[in-house]
């Protein structure tokens, strides 16, 4: 029970320290900021990177007898994992002035895999579906409202795409006007995203006040 109370009091203190940032930079905020950065970095190093990534995905598979018990300890080691382990170790050569360039092989591999994966996934999961989304019948017999809405969608998509042309200026009767319409659509979209987010952010603030007033002060 004492630790629960301690936890709430620490939480309330840190909360107030963080809120003080709204006034200006002050020793309380600086204290909370330093502690937060330190604790979160320590948490990611030990819990996330070591216990949740490195141990189950590399160490437990490479040294099952040491990191597992029971049946799992009897599984044959996966020696292929020596490759990422080795490439990971190469990154540590950045500590050396002379051998830092060796880590380039690791960077090259990571970049190759990431970009190769990006090419296919962005084409399949985003590019093609977004093109399909912009294709709608602009005239539906007997439904003027839907026809207008679909026309707005198609024209808006095309006009915004014109805005993203780089090899020509936003000028001229066709291109200039289309790009201008594109900007209008972009602004409407930004406004809509902005408006949709406001309430969510306010509810977060309410949640924090609820912690202070309920969990800490027991007022409400």
């Amino acid at each position: 029970m004492a630790t629960e109370i301690l936890c709430v009091w620490i939480g309330a203190f840190i909360t107030l320290c963080c809120f003080s940032f709204l006034y200006k930079d002050n020793p309380f905020y600086r204290f909370a900021e330093s502690l937060f950065v330190g604790v979160s970095a320590g948490y990611y190093l030990s819990v996330v990177y070591f216990h949740q990534v490195l141990k189950p995905n590399l160490l437990a598979k490479l040294f099952p007898t040491f990191f597992n018990v029971g049946e799992a300890a009897k599984v044959a080691p996966d020696y292929w994992l020596i490759i990422p382990g080795f490439l990971g170790c190469l990154m540590l050569l950045r500590f050396s002035q002379k051998l830092a360039w060796v880590s380039r092989f690791t960077v090259a591999f990571v970049m190759g895999v990431s970009t190769g994966l990006t090419i296919v996934t962005s084409a399949q999961q985003y590019l093609i579906p977004q093109i399909a989304k912009a294709i709608k019948p602009i005239f539906i017999y007997g439904d003027i409202g839907q026809s207008i809405s679909n026309t707005v969608l198609v024209v808006g998509s095309i006009a915004c795409l014109f805005y993203f042309f780089f090899s020509t200026e936003h000028r001229g009767p066709v291109y200039g006007n289309l790009a201008k319409i594109g900007i209008w659509f972009l602004m409407i979209s930004f406004g809509a995203s902005f408006g949709a987010t406001v309430m969510g952010r306010i509810s977060l603030l309410i949640g924090r006040f609820a912690f202070l007033l309920h969990d800490w002060l027991h007022i409400i």
Binding site: F21, K24, Y29, E33, F36, V37, V39, A41
Partner: peptide, 20 residues
């Protein structure tokens, strides 16, 4: 330099750097 992997821990640190 590295600060922290945490999204808001990072932004707290960067915010502090900006203010100072």
């Amino acid at each position: 330099n590295y600060l922290t992997d945490d999204q808001f821990g990072y932004v707290a640190g960067v915010g502090g750097i900006m203010m100072r």
